[in-house]
C-alpha cells in the first residue's frame, strides 16, 4: 500500500464530504504503532504481512493500549481464518487486495467516518 494509492482511494469519499485528511505512512508495524501513539491515526489502514512487526501483533498491542482508533485491515492474505482473527482482535473491517475504491468508501460510510 503506497501513500499514492491510499490517497486515491480516500480522495473521492473525503472530498465529497469536505473532509481534509493527513496521511502518515509506516513501513512496518512498529512504525504504525509509533504513529498511533503520536495521535496520527484516527483511522489505520493495516497490512498483515509486514517485516519487523506484523499486522496481528499491531492489533494485539492496540488492544492492550485500549484501541482508540478504527483499524481497517487491507491484506492479500484472504484466508477466511485471517479475516476472523483480525475481527476478533478489534479490526472494524477486512478489505481484500487488490483494493477497490468502493470497498474503502463502504467501510468509511458504515462507521460514519465520512
Amino acid at each position: 500500500m503506497t501513500p499514492e494509492s491510499l490517497e486515491k482511494w480516500l480522495f473521492v469519499p473525503c472530498r465529497h464530504n469536505g473532509i481534509s485528511i493527513e496521511l502518515t505512512q509506516a513501513e512496518n508495524g512498529e512504525e504504525a504503532l509509533a504513529a498511533y501513539r503520536d495521535g496520527k491515526a484516527e483511522v489505520m489502514f493495516l497490512d498483515l504481512t509486514m517485516p519487523v512487526m506484523d499486522g496481528y501483533q499491531v492489533l494485539e498491542q492496540l488492544q492492550k493500549e485500549q484501541l482508540n482508533t478504527f483499524v481497517v485491515v487491507v491484506s492479500a492474505d484472504i484466508q477466511p481464518k485471517a479475516q476472523e482473527r483480525v475481527k476478533k482482535l478489534g479490526a472494524i473491517a477486512f478489505i481484500k487486495k487488490p483494493v477497490k475504491t468502493s470497498d474503502i468508501e463502504n467501510v468509511l460510510h458504515e462507521y460514519g467516518i465520512v
Binding site: 500500500m1 492479500a76 484472504i78 484466508q79 487486495k97
Partner: peptide
C-alpha cells in the same frame, strides 16, 4: 504488491486443501 496479492491467493488455496490456517 502484485507478488503479495498472488501469493496471498496461493496461500488461501493451500489453507483450503490442508484445512489449516
Amino acid at each position: 504488491e502484485v507478488v503479495n496479492i498472488a501469493m496471498g491467493q496461493a496461500g488461501d488455496s493451500l489453507a483450503r486443501i490442508l484445512g489449516n490456517f
